[in-house]
Simulated assay, not measured.
Amino acid sequence: MTDKHLSSQFDADLNQVSSKLLAMGGLVESQIDCAMRALNDFDLDLVDRIMEDERRLNTMEVDIDEEISNIIARRQPAARDLRLLMAVSKTITNLERAGDEARKIAKRTRRISSEPAARSINIAEIKQSGDMAISVLHRALDAFARLDTVAAAHIIREDDAIDEQFKAFVRKLVSYMMEDPRVISVALDYLFIAKAIERIGDHATNIAEFIIYVVKGTDVRHVSREQLEREALG
């Protein structure tokens, strides 16, 4: 993930914090996968597991941030090294928030699991967008590990597909609610779940943007898609 430095200990410090980030990312991926399987099967054991693992995520975030602060204090990094540490700090924040979205999905799953109407709504778009969100997050973390700006640009572009799945599901939910007012409560819970998945895609996109920031030194969070791709691919 990093270039070699004169200080081998500095390299070790950077590699260690990067490894911890990827371990945290792996746990978040598992959380999201569990949330989607819990939703598909109304598996409340998986819901409990997600709630328990959230505490681990919070601990990992605090631990990594503390380590980043210590590295900055000891090494006083500049340029790309400093950008990398800042990007790691922002990435773990996005990972923690993606984990929060998995917890929200789990909580709504527990709530609707006993509702007969929950099984009367076709949630194909939710399942598909969930798979897409897991994939894009995994690839964002892989691109971060390699600092691959080309992969980052592709990930950012693909977030549009998750947004489209969300919009399609909203249209479907409106039809369900108009046809049968008895499903309104469950439909709103499903809407909340779909929005949580969309937010996971947004967090993956943010991580991809941080890669471009580290490598190119350009903050692309609020630029046009065309300008972002020029920075990533140029």
Rank of each mutant, 00 (worst) to 15 (best):
A151M: 11
E226R: 10
R111M: 15
A23L: 10
A118N: 07
C34H: 11
S19H: 09
D53I: 10
V214Q: 05
N70A: 13
D219K: 08
R225G: 12
K127R: 15
A204Q: 07
I121E: 07
L44M: 13
R103C: 04
E229D: 13
V150C: 05
L39K: 01
K104W: 05
Q165C: 09
M24K: 02
Q165E: 12
E67Y: 08
S7K: 04
V186R: 02
A145H: 14
L188I: 09
L84H: 11
V17D: 02
K20Y: 06
P77C: 08
E198F: 04
V214K: 02
R182V: 01
A133H: 07
L39Q: 04
V186D: 09
M132N: 11
D13M: 07
Q9K: 14
R221E: 11
N70F: 05
R74Q: 14
V186I: 06
R111L: 15
A153D: 12
F166G: 02
A98E: 09
E179Y: 06
E125H: 15
S135M: 10
D63I: 06
N122I: 08
L95W: 05
E179N: 10
P77I: 03
I50C: 07
P116Q: 10
G201L: 08
R119V: 07
L95R: 01
I92H: 01
I71C: 05
R225Q: 13
F192C: 06
D202G: 12
A204S: 13
H5Q: 06
R199K: 12
G130Y: 03
Q227M: 12
I68P: 02
T91Q: 11
V174G: 04
R221M: 09
E164G: 08
A204F: 04
D63L: 11
S89M: 12
S135Y: 12
Q76C: 12
